[in-house]
Nucleic acid binder design. Structure first.
Lengths: 198, 198
DNA sequence: GTACAGGTTCGACGGGTATCGAAGTATGGA
DNA sequence: TCCATACTTCGATACCCGTCGAACCTGTAC
């Protein structure tokens, strides 16, 4: 299970059980122990309980152990999400899927958001970025809740900021919506995203 | 036992058993397993079997694990060697004790010796050093056997080089011998050693 | 509400494994 | 030659721990 979690993503107890070739009860037993020992972080979201490595130090230690002795690979965890929705979709009122995760990664690595506990907030450093979106600067602080992406198992932006972001991207035609939840990234949107990622 | 070995020194099965608070049989059982798993290196010397961590990668992994969770310290391993002999003494025909280990460390970190398996040899880079000792350069290659120091549990030089080294240090009066195995480092010797260690 | 899926808790079982006593094998010293 | 010491092997025991079946809890969907 730890090996499966080594990709940094979050997985449910059932998925990890399948990856390790054990029953969900057994997995639950071990996951509970590892959580209490501080190796894993638990994230309750609806009826799902996502587990992920508690931090980069745990990942480093695991890698270190693996460098000594190769362990058998866990069974691959397959996503049940259709590829189209996986790429980009709406999650209630914000962007989800691989696109949502890309945005989250780009903005956090730029320092445009800070997290205080479970709450995220857009920083003053993001003023230009907000202007680009057409969001007036005096709306700061814009709050956000990190939401674990169902298909990607990484975070994307939800909350106020997530809503404003989707609205702006739609109005600039950086993404196109449809009647389904699917989103399509336009060429203009790709250029914009690439600029944020630099 | 692994915690006790984390100082990089080599210890016997009995010592490690005492450090871990288990019987020698149990220690032997585990040490055998860890040796076969490639975690420990075994060094037979007479009737003693010295165990040490197989390499710096093992030490790094242990440190990494310890950084996640503090483990109880093992019982201290006490040396039964009198302090005087521990500082500097002869071991048959070469220098042993803390002094021998210091010399070994200084010369190896300078690249003046290379090891091919269990055999050590003095390199050409040590020409000036050999001249200083009064050993003619054409005696190269001077071979050496690393000998695990009984009191320090680290290596010192034995073999041809160990013998030549002791003779030279005695004739230059860098160390003084006596009727016992004890050696005394003179002031000139201290200066010389400090120069090698730079 | 009812059905269902994700998840946990409980209890019991079975195998593994750490442990030590006793006995055996080497090595070194008296 | 004899003994002490270092260490291992063997065998037996006790217990820990991983495992799963069954039952229970808790959200989501219709």
């Amino acid at each position: 299970m730890l090996l499966a979690l080594l990709d940094g993503k979050a997985y449910t107890a059932n998925e990890l059980a399948r990856a390790a070739g054990i029953t969900p009860q057994t997995a639950s037993f071990h996951l509970d122990k590892m959580s209490k020992a501080g190796l894993l972080a638990l994230l309750r979201q609806g009826r799902y309980r996502y587990f992920r490595l508690a931090g980069p130090d745990v990942a480093r230690t695991l890698e270190s152990i693996l460098s000594l002795q190769h362990a058998p690979s866990p069974r691959q965890i397959v996503s049940s999400c259709p590829a189209r929705l996986r790429a980009a979709r709406t999650c209630f009122d914000h962007v989800a899927g691989a696109l949502g995760v890309r945005i989250y990664r780009a903005l956090t690595s730029r320092g445009w958001t800070t997290h205080a506990g479970a709450q995220f907030a857009v920083t003053a450093a993001a003023a230009d970025f907000l202007g680009e979106l057409g969001i007036p600067g005096d709306t700061l602080p814009v709050k956000s809740t990190p939401c674990l992406d169902w298909s990607e198992r990484e975070f994307h932006f939800a909350g106020d900021f997530g809503r404003l972001l989707l609205q702006a991207m739609l109005s600039h035609r950086w993404v196109l919506g449809g009647k389904s939840r699917q989103l399509t990234l336009t060429e203009a949107g790709q250029r914009r995203l690439a600029a944020w990622e630099i």
